[in-house]
Amino acid sequence: MHELLLYGQVSAARHDQVLKILAGFAAMQPRRILQRRIIYKPEREPEEPGSHLRRGGTQAVAVKQKLQATTPTQLYYTHLVQKLSEEDFGQGDSKTSDTLSADVDFEGGEEPRWSTLFEDIPDTGDRGVSIRFTNNTDLIGGDPHTFMTTSGPNRFVTEYYIEGHRFVHGNVVIFLHRILHEPGVRNLQTEPKVNPPAFEALQLLDQSGTYILEAKVRVQDFKDASVLESGVNELKGFQISMRGCVELSLPDRLTMDTRVKYTPPPGVVTKAQVQAQAQVQGQQNNR
C-alpha cells in the first residue's frame, strides 16, 4: 500500500479553531485518537554503502552474485503501534509478571489493538505530494514486543505517544495530532512499558504545543496511473480547500528517512583511512 501525504502546522492557540473548521469541512465529529508507538532498530548493522560494488579483483564471480540476492542492502527502523483509550493511561506500575498482549476477542467485536508499521523513505517523484510505501500488519495474538525482537532481530529503541483527532473527508484521512513522550526514562528503558504512565505525566516533544496536520490518501493500486492521479487530485483539492486556514506542504524527503544510517565500526580501518595514512607516510619519507 502507498500513502500520499501532505503536512501542515497548527499552533496551539489555533488548534480549537482548526478543529472546528475541519469538523465543519468533513461534516463529522472529530474522533479522538491515542496511540503509542514503539520504535525498533535492526540488531544487525547495515552494510557499508557501496559495499556491493566490486572493489579490486575477485576470483569468485558467480558465487558472489548469489550471496547478494539474499541479504538486503538497506535496513529500516520499524514501528509497533498500539491503539490506546483514555482509560489505558495511568493504571499504575506494572508487575513484573505482566506482559504485553495483543490477543483479540473477535467474538466480542473487538478490533486488533496492536499492529506493526513499516514506512519506506518517500519516493523521489515530483507530484506535489509525498508518496511512500507503507505496510501495516495487525497483530492478533501473543506478545508484540517479543514478536518484534525476534523477527528481525530487532532492538527496542524508544517509545512515544500520539494524541490527536482524526477526520475523514472522502478518501482523505485528516489527522491533527502532536507527539508526547515520557521525560527522563528514555535511556534507561530496554523494553516497552506494559502499562502507559498517567497521561498528565507525559510531556510534549515540541514544547510550544504545535500540532501537526497530516492529510493522507491511501492507494492500493499504485501502478494504476488513473487511480494514483485521482488520489493525488483529491489530496490537492483538500490542500486548496484548506488554503488560508492551514498551509499544507510537501515535507523534505530526507527528513522522513527511515533507513538505518551506516556508521563505520570503531577499530575497523576503512579504505579511505588507509589511503590517508599512506599519504602522510609518503610525505614524511620525502622529508
Binding site: 463529522m28 477526520f167 491511501r218 492507494v219 488513473s226 488520489g231
Partner: peptide, 11 residues
Amino acid sequence: RRTQLPSPLTA
C-alpha cells in the same frame, strides 16, 4: 461508514 477509515484506493 463515512467516518471510518476509508479503504485504500483501488481501480
